[in-house]
Each structure stands twice: as structure tokens, then as C-alpha cells.
Computed example of a mutant assay.
Amino acid sequence: MTTRLILDEHYSAAIARALRELSHDVVAAVASDELRGASDPELYRHATQTGRRIVTENIKDFRPLLLAATAAGTTAAPVLLVPPRRFPRGRGDRNAAIVAAFDAWLRRPDVDPRPKEDWLT
């Protein structure tokens, strides 16, 4: 099984494109007419329906969506939570650092069975 990601809106389409060039199945919400500007619950529903893990810095909104779905016993899209300080905006080549970190996470031998709530540290 291959972990499929969807990047929340604060990640550029260039990041998703660079990860696809590394053979990962990654889409960016900002690159999709359907998802650009979608609410967090809409993006979460889409990720659940398409079997993708959401990558986001928006911990305060997506973590509760995951916890609510899990508590309700419904299918829950997994999330990869990225602390906002991990990749400060406006710092050097932020995209290259993000691509490298996501690529390393995706290449982990235990990536598929990772918990539904995982953290990029």
C-alpha cells in the first residue's frame, strides 16, 4: 500500500509537484478547482472519501475533525500534523526543506501503518 497525501492550502502546488517527481502520490488543495477555498470539514471529507492523509499545520481545526470521526466510529482520514514552527514562513528555501522532510517521512518503512494522528517532528 502507498500512502497518498493531500496538502492543505498553506502548501504550494510546487511542493506536491516536487513530491510527485519523487514518485509519491501527492495532491495540493490549492491546485484543485474543487478544493481551493474548501472549508476544513469539506477538505477532511474529501480526504476521507479519496483515501488520502491530510498534511497540515492547522492542528487546531483538523485534529478535532479526526477525533470526532474516530469517536463516532466512522471512517476517518488520517492526518500528518506539522508544527508551524517546523518550517517557518519566509525562511530561505522553505519548499526544499518541506519536500525533503515529507519525502523522508513517506519513505519510512513503517509509513503505511503509522497512527491516524501522526506528527512530523
Score class of each variant (00 low, 15 high):
Pro64Lys: 04
Pro64Gln: 04
Pro64Thr: 04
Pro64His: 04
Leu65Pro: 05
Leu65Ile: 09
Leu66Met: 00
Leu66Thr: 01
Leu66His: 11
Leu66Arg: 08
Leu67Arg: 15
Leu67His: 12
Leu67Ala: 15
Ala68Gly: 05
Ala68Pro: 00
Ala68Ser: 13
Ala68His: 12
Ala68Gln: 14
Ala69Trp: 04
Thr70Tyr: 05
Thr70Pro: 00
Thr70Trp: 11
Thr70Cys: 06
Thr70Val: 15
Ala71Tyr: 01
Ala71Gln: 13
Ala71Arg: 14
Ala71Lys: 13
Ala72Pro: 03
Ala72Trp: 03
Gly73Tyr: 11
Gly73Gln: 12
Gly73Asp: 11
Gly73Lys: 12
Thr74Asn: 14
Thr74Tyr: 04
Thr74Cys: 11
Thr74Phe: 03
Thr75Asp: 14
Thr75Asn: 10
Thr75Pro: 04
Thr75Ile: 03
Thr75Leu: 10
Ala76Val: 04
Ala76Pro: 03
Ala77Ile: 01
Ala77Met: 02
Ala77Asn: 02
Pro78Arg: 07
Pro78Asn: 04
Pro78Ser: 12
Pro78Cys: 04
Pro78Asp: 05
Pro78Tyr: 03
Val79Lys: 03
Val79Leu: 15
Val79Ser: 02
Val79Gly: 02
Val79Cys: 12
Val79His: 02
Leu80Pro: 01
Leu80Trp: 01
Leu80Gly: 01
Leu81Thr: 09
Leu81His: 07
Leu81Met: 15
Leu81Pro: 05
Leu81Gly: 07
Val82Lys: 02
Val82Gly: 02
Val82Thr: 03
Pro83Glu: 06
Pro83Asn: 08
Pro84Arg: 15
Pro84Trp: 14
Pro84Gly: 13
Pro84Lys: 15
Arg85Ala: 14
Arg85Ile: 06
Arg85Pro: 00
Arg86Glu: 12
Arg86His: 12
Arg86Thr: 15
Arg86Phe: 11
Arg86Gly: 00
Arg86Trp: 02
Arg86Ile: 05
Arg86Gln: 13
Arg86Ser: 15
Phe87Gln: 07
Phe87Tyr: 09
Phe87Leu: 07
Pro88Thr: 09
Pro88Asn: 09
Arg89Trp: 13
Arg89Thr: 14
Arg89Ser: 15
Arg89Gly: 14
Gly90Met: 07
Gly90Ala: 08
Gly90Tyr: 07
Arg91Cys: 05
Arg91His: 12
Arg91Met: 11
Gly92Gln: 13
Gly92Met: 06
Gly92Asp: 15
Gly92Cys: 01
Gly92Val: 06
Asp93Gln: 11
Asp93Pro: 05
Arg94Met: 11
Arg94Pro: 05
Arg94Phe: 05
Arg94Asp: 05
Arg94Gly: 04
Arg94Lys: 14
Arg94Asn: 12
Arg94Val: 12
Asn95Ile: 02
Asn95Met: 08
Asn95Trp: 00
Asn95Ala: 14
Asn95Pro: 00
Ala96Met: 00
Ala96Cys: 00
Ala97Glu: 14
Ala97Thr: 07
Ile98Tyr: 03
Val99Glu: 05
Val99Ala: 09
Val99Gln: 07
Val99Cys: 07
Val99Arg: 09
Val99Lys: 09
Val99Gly: 06
